[in-house]
Design a protein around this nucleic acid. Structure first.
Lengths: 338, 338
DNA sequence: CTGTTAGCGCTTTCAA
DNA sequence: TTGAAAGCGCTAACAG
């Protein structure tokens, strides 16, 4: 434990800088010298101190990810992509989980700083304009995934189009009483900027396109989660004129809807169609119809952008859109009156 | 960007050490001086460099976690506990995902070093004796979760007892043709040390206790995963004398079994009982009977041990066992001949 | 109480 | 091609 570069230099009878050169594969070392140094390194079990190296380099060799990981399975799936794309890059991955407003503020303020991160990836959490501006000034490359902020590059999908896609599908199945369940329109944690909101806009747009009147009592917004969605759906289904189809802004919420239907003995898809969004892992398992977005790929792509920025190239396109697809499975069916 | 402690000292007209003292809440500063320094700090938007601080301190201020995160939902749930317990401790959480032998070797070798981590948490991956010994020598506190290695403290459950519990339950429901599906007995990634193996031992023990003969054709071991379990289960159910109950060593694998039953039109639990292990999130949703273990808590407890070790106290008990419970849901039922 | 100073281990000039 | 030396920004020991 604890041989330093100096020990190696001394033992190899060379200068300190030479050892450093060997370590960094500099071509400016003679083969003989290099070999001697290498031998001593092996002999001493020497490995350079990451931390001293970082200090001297002025780089931390870490990429930080800020996200609400555990409240959203979709984020974990994105993280998978992040991890895969980062493997072998030499960067460590440090994660900051955000589930409260305080933590969000603290992370946005402290993490994107040169002495903490070489690059930052923010997932499913939108910085406010001032925060985004501060990030821009920090000099640390920041990439957003599944969100947007002026001046910061991001990888996203067209959630409005996705919401519209889901809703059109239901309408084309003959449904007219189509309800929506999604996140709160005002959410301090996400600064009111959620993909749910856009999907909701798509929902309304589809309805309008088909001349179906909006019904406020069909529009539900509540804290993200399966249980919350379940109770919203229950209320929805107990209305005098319950919907025949429900579009949930996420698969997690769609699962809550399915539970509510089960609670109330409504057959899915017989008397109720349900569609979600994301296509998380379990969606296939439970046969949930949904709008698929490339979660893994979004994380991987975010890292690619970040790595490119770290090696000097500015992102070509500030906004990069990935595509969404409708995945029809077993929770949607043509409308049947009664 | 980039005010240093020296700038602050100069501007406040004090010595460099005084600023450091203020930063570290040393009591050896007069209130007046402290205030002056604080003012300058605010004025300059100064924040100390984490990295320089780490370097001077000789501590990295990070906790590393090594685990196969994405192949096992249970590990993500444990990570949740880790994250929660670490929040507010001042430590950053860096994650090392391991899915190959090479990566495992590299992580075990490189991560537990003073210049990289102040403490290391290893989840669901057992270090080999030599690796464990090296970790012990590194001087970096290491805590294991869901695994074991001589000389290293760990947080686990009694998997043998858990496996026995599950199997006994099936037997007591009247099943005699009880099969097992689990991970490979020889797995280089986990160095043959898996909780699955212990659960399998519990399975055999329960059978023996009831005088039920072991049937090699009922013992399946294959790569961990839903798809693999699905095909193993399919083969199992197509045998001349198919089992009437299956114990899967994890919920993920139990889900594969459920799919296989669906594929072959076997009614669960009518003509096939299925029980899993872990009680991951979706288990409740899909009504899977299982053996519950405290996943979240295991991660949190691991961090607690680690933090205690970091503040000097040796772990009282090298092995800390958490308890398991049987959770009977909708995939198990009494044996019905035919 | 407070200023000064000596490193922490490495990278990177700058000479030789 | 190589050695020597100057920091990177901070903490902690030491005088005062």
């Amino acid at each position: 434990m604890g041989a330093t570069i100096r020990d190696v230099a001394r033992r190899a009878g060379v200068g300190l800088g030479t050892v450093s050169r060997v370590l960094n594969n500099s071509p400016l070392v003679s083969p003989a010298t290099r070999q001697r140094v290498l031998d001593v390194i092996a002999e001493l079990h020497y490995t350079p101190s990451q931390i001293a190296r970082s200090f001297a380099l002025g780089r931390t060799l870490t990429i930080s990810t800020i996200a609400p990981f555990f409240t959203r399975p979709s984020v974990v799936e994105r993280l998978r992509g992040v991890e895969a794309a980062l493997a072998g890059s030499g960067y460590n991955l440090v994660v900051f989980n955000v589930e409260t407003v305080e933590r969000r503020v603290a992370c946005f303020r402290d993490v994107p700083r040169r002495d903490r991160s070489d690059g930052v990836l923010i997932i499913s959490l939108a910085p406010r304009p001032v925060e985004a501006a501060a990030m821009g000034d920090s000099g640390v490359p920041v990439v957003l995934v599944d969100t947007f902020a002026a001046g910061l590059p991001s990888v996203l999908v067209d959630d409005v189009a996705g919401g519209e896609l889901a809703t059109r599908y239901l309408i084309e199945l003959g449904h007219r009483a189509v309800a929506f369940i999604g996140d709160p329109l005002e959410d301090p944690l996400t600064f009111n900027f959620t993909s749910s909101r856009d999907r909701f806009a798509g929902y309304r747009r589809a309805l309008a396109a088909y001349g179906v009147a909006l019904r406020p009592e069909y529009e539900c917004h509540g804290v993200h989660g399966r249980y919350e969605a379940r109770s919203m759906a229950r209320a929805l289904l107990q209305q005098p004129e319950p919907p025949s189809a429900i579009f949930a802004a996420s698969d997690t919420q769609a699962m809550g809807v399915l539970e509510a239907a089960r609670d109330l003995g409504r057959d899915v898809p017989g008397s109720l169609s349900v569609i979600g969004f994301d296509d998380i892992d379990v969606a296939e398992y439970i046969g949930l119809s949904t709008v698929r977005q490339p979660l893994f790929e979004s994380g991987a792509r975010g890292v690619e952008l970040l790595l490119a920025m770290l090696s000097g190239s500015a992102p070509r396109t500030p906004l990069e859109y990935l595509s969404v697809d409708l995945v029809a499975r077993a929770t949607t069916a043509p409308y049947r009156p009664g």
